[in-house]
Amino acid sequence: MKALWKDLLTHLRADFRPDLYLAVALWVAFLLSVNYYLDFEDSYIDSFQGKPLWPVLYFGLYATAYYVSVWLWTRFNDRPDVWRSRQFWLRSGYALVFYSIYAGFYAHATWSRELFDGQIFVFLYYCLHNLQSVLTIVLPLYVFYRLVDQRRHASSFYGMAPKQKGLALYALLLALMIPLITLASFQPDFLASYPTYRDTNANEFLGVPEWITVLIYELCYGWDFVPTELLFRGFLVIGMSQVLGRGAVLPMVVWYSAIHFGRPVGEAVSSIFGGYLLGVLALSTRSIWGGLLIHIGIAWGMELAAFLQGWRP
């Protein structure tokens, strides 16, 4: 744990510049203000749900957030060579295209209607919504890894190899969240949102106990955090560090905050700090398993807390 804190401080000493970090903070604040003042994502981008323009609009949002952040980093660090790098454009463009397809993917709605004649549409919709990332993120990144980075003798598939370094710190951070989750579970607005699983009578249709459909749903729900960590901490930090070095972290954080624009503003703001910490630690450990532990642990912890509250007399 001490070694990981040392790595974090080392990164800050090497990367922190008051002018750069202030500029990035102002850029993020501007993006947050525009989005939440105009309700940009929910009222405009999502109005094209299911239409071909939907992923294109997401691409525009994410590309703007990411490339302006890279420009700021290159400007303050005097690195104009980055913009002449084919590897930079290949990696960033590849990530933007496929994450935008993921964000604007809607075919699972059709699949849910066609499977079982749509009789358990809601259950299948949410399960397939979480699983579609296999096609839109994981498979494309694996192809890139095999064709490009494995030839460069990359140690693992963008940090997917488990490593013990830092796991104690991640476990401590997760443990610190337990009292907060417990406290939140007593709030009406929390129980209005969690558990995300809803009784859809899918267990009656399939002829199985409800705990089986709950388990299937929760596994699908937990899976959706894997491609998020794989792309943002794996591909955009561990992979992109071949081009930007430690500078891969800040642009990733800004883009990562942008994917939370459809959620409460507090969640979008907290994602900035969480994304930065997980990005630095992923760069240090060359592994995304710590981020997976925290992300999935918190998600399932909130589900469990809500289930327990629902079982109260």
Rank of each mutant, 00 (worst) to 15 (best):
residue 2 K to V: 12
residue 3 A to R: 09
residue 3 A to N: 12
residue 12 L to Q: 13
residue 13 R to F: 07
residue 14 A to I: 07
residue 18 P to K: 06
residue 20 L to E: 04
residue 21 Y to W: 05
residue 22 L to I: 05
residue 24 V to M: 03
residue 32 L to P: 01
residue 38 L to Q: 02
residue 41 E to S: 00
residue 45 I to D: 06
residue 51 K to D: 14
residue 55 P to C: 06
residue 66 Y to K: 12
residue 74 T to N: 04
residue 74 T to E: 09
residue 77 N to A: 13
residue 78 D to K: 15
residue 79 R to D: 14
residue 83 W to M: 15
residue 85 S to R: 09
residue 90 L to H: 09
residue 92 S to P: 10
residue 93 G to K: 05
residue 94 Y to T: 02
residue 95 A to E: 02
residue 95 A to W: 01
residue 102 Y to M: 04
residue 102 Y to G: 03
residue 103 A to C: 11
residue 115 L to D: 03
residue 120 I to S: 03
residue 122 V to I: 12
residue 125 Y to Q: 13
residue 128 L to K: 05
residue 128 L to A: 08
residue 131 L to F: 11
residue 132 Q to H: 15
residue 132 Q to C: 10
residue 133 S to F: 07
residue 135 L to T: 08
residue 148 V to W: 15
residue 153 H to M: 10
residue 154 A to H: 12
residue 163 K to E: 04
residue 166 G to P: 05
residue 166 G to C: 03
residue 171 A to N: 03
residue 175 A to G: 06
residue 177 M to F: 12
residue 177 M to H: 10
residue 185 S to C: 09
residue 189 D to H: 15
residue 189 D to C: 08
residue 189 D to R: 14
residue 191 L to T: 11
residue 192 A to M: 12
residue 192 A to W: 08
residue 199 D to E: 15
residue 203 N to D: 14
residue 218 E to N: 07
residue 220 C to Q: 00
residue 222 G to K: 00
residue 223 W to F: 14
residue 225 F to R: 02
residue 232 F to N: 02
residue 237 V to D: 02
residue 237 V to F: 04
residue 238 I to Y: 05
residue 240 M to Q: 13
residue 241 S to G: 10
residue 244 L to C: 09
residue 246 R to V: 05
residue 249 V to A: 02
residue 249 V to E: 02
residue 257 S to G: 10
residue 260 H to G: 11
residue 264 P to F: 06
residue 266 G to S: 10
residue 267 E to C: 05
residue 271 S to A: 15
residue 278 L to V: 01
residue 278 L to R: 01
residue 280 V to W: 01
residue 280 V to N: 00
residue 285 T to H: 02
residue 287 S to D: 00
residue 293 L to N: 04
residue 296 I to S: 06
residue 299 A to H: 08
residue 302 M to A: 12
residue 303 E to A: 09
residue 303 E to R: 08
residue 304 L to Y: 13
residue 309 Q to T: 11
residue 309 Q to M: 15
